[in-house]
């Protein structure tokens, strides 16, 4: 197989995120999350989409849309 074919081959990456609500009796509840890159088992916690995006970009090498 030539290098061209390799370059054209699609690389699949999977991420699984869990998002939960930290509810408080006083003050606003907060959404927090955990994301895991399945193929490497790298993981991170996040509280805003910017941090999630940063992790996705860091693991995949692809910069996603700006949030």
């Amino acid at each position: 197989m030539g290098s061209g074919a390799m370059e054209n081959k699609q690389v699949s990456m999977s991420f699984v995120a869990r998002i939960w609500l930290e509810a408080g009796t006083n003050g606003d509840p907060i959404w927090r999350g955990h994301v895991r890159h399945v193929q490497s088992n790298d993981e991170a916690f996040f509280q805003d989409l910017g941090s999630l995006n940063e992790f996705l970009a860091q693991v995949s090498g692809v910069t996603g849309p700006q949030t």
Binding site: E22, G24, T25, N26, G27, I30, R32, A44, F45, F46, Q47, S51
Partner: peptide, 13 residues
Amino acid sequence: EELGVEPMRDTLR
């Protein structure tokens, strides 16, 4: 360390 945030107000209280 993980989130770069402070505990919630309920926890601090």
